[in-house]
Write a protein that binds this DNA or RNA. Structure first.
Lengths: 236, 236
DNA sequence: CAGGCTAGGTGTACGCCGTACACCAGTCAA
DNA sequence: TTGACTGGTGTACGGCGTACACCTAGCCTG
């Protein structure tokens, strides 16, 4: 009386099993050799079976990103500076564990829930530290591109797939109300950017300003180090 | 007496014509629809003809990167800070003109001549401003990931295609002598990193340190703004 | 128990991709 | 004249994402 007809019944596929297998495969063999066919083979299944659990390869990648972003440590209590620092370093460790992730994240349009949650709680840590929404907004841009390219172009749609250089500001595109409810801190800085400044030419998020803000922040710091004769050697 | 047999003799392909057509195509239709077949069609030629001018698609991408990187303004004379600032902003304008370039650059191993020349002359501007090679080295890392992801992992090979998380430092991998001669400033900071510090655990470029250096630079600047109640509004 | 619905795995097929390989038409040096 | 070399051609192969039709097992309802 054989328990099963002939083979040990394989555990049934689930979306989660598919995504985790995809992450493992990308970790081991690199993102460029992650194909639906290879992934299916890893799972002992025919390629088309995957499409019962993810809509297509893009959605698979989005799901993988959500999984690894969720690995970033939650924000710690206490001093905002320490909290942010730890958070960013945790994100970096995640990226080192999953070398494909950084490029994958940058190449997506990225509005996945886990990414938004990550950004939102980071903004939350800033605001808890007493930052104005205005400053928190710019700080997120400044930090963003450092830690993963995250949030760099979060608030405008102009980045889309390589549209020719037309840099029309486009719509302010603040979060839809359902999102705003789930991510209040993000909503706060998004709307802050829109209504704060009547003086500035267009509404929405001034990408150029953000870029120069971060750049000048770096340059001023660098100038200070230079002036003070900074060196990485501990004095002997 | 027809001048040509039947068709107006098409201008002969050259490597440069191929690369520029590829850049134009990527600008117009996005990098994801740049295929050897589409490119060949644009040039009025059969796909395989391209391979007489570029070895393969990866080399095509490298060539495209060289072309757009060469568009970045050369460093201006005078104040280092102004010079770097202008340079970085020029690079940014290039990236806005060629939206595909930033991802393309980050996904390559990137040791292409134009990229190295760009980095080298930037280091040169710093040194001309009196920076120690030590400081210039760290500054390049701090600036690097801001402007394009450039130089981020320039001096180590560990980034390679998604090798599993093994973060072995690997060989210091300073420039081969022929490269060192062409890019003296790069060579200076590369070797500076290797021989300066006997105290540090391993030789070579400490990636983690670079990352924290840049991060702390940002955080300190941010802290200062926060303390001073900075706001982007001009006082009314 | 019969019948049918549905979720999930299968098989085949299509059009795209990069590119290996054999070929061929001019041009030019010997 | 000849023979090599340069650059464009044609065919073909294996891999990719995925549309579409199919099958099967389990369950719900009568």
């Amino acid at each position: 009386m054989a328990e099963q007809v002939e083979t040990v019944r394989r555990a049934p596929l689930t979306r989660d099993r598919v995504l985790r297998a995809a992450v493992a495969l990308a970790d081991q063999t690199g993102i460029e050799s992650l194909s639906m066919r290879n992934l299916a083979q890893d799972l002992g299944v025919v390629p088309m079976a995957l499409y019962k659990h993810v809509a297509n390869k893009d959605e698979l990648l989005d799901g993988m990103i959500d999984i690894v972003v969720a690995e970033i440590d939650p924000p710690a209590a206490g001093d905002w500076k320490q909290a942010i620092r730890r958070r960013v370093l945790s994100a970096r460790r995640m990226l080192l564990r999953h070398p494909w992730a950084s490029l994958a994240i940058e190449s997506r349009t990225m509005a996945t829930p886990a990414v938004l949650a990550y950004l939102d709680s980071t903004v939350g840590a800033l605001r808890a530290g007493g930052f104005s929404t205005d400053l928190a907004h710019h700080v997120m841009h400044a930090l963003g591109s450092r830690v993963l390219g995250f949030s760099q172009e979060l608030f405008d749609a102009s980045r889309q797939a390589g549209r020719s250089g037309a840099t029309v500001p486009e719509a302010p595109a603040d979060l839809p109300p359902e999102m705003a409810a789930r991510f209040p801190n993000l909503a706060a800085i998004a709307t802050a950017a829109s209504h704060d400044d009547d003086s500035v030419v267009g509404p929405g998020c001034d990408d150029q300003f953000e870029f120069e803000f971060a750049l000048d922040l770096l340059l001023d710091g660098i100038e200070r180090l230079h002036r003070d004769g900074w060196t990485s050697h501990r004095t002997p």
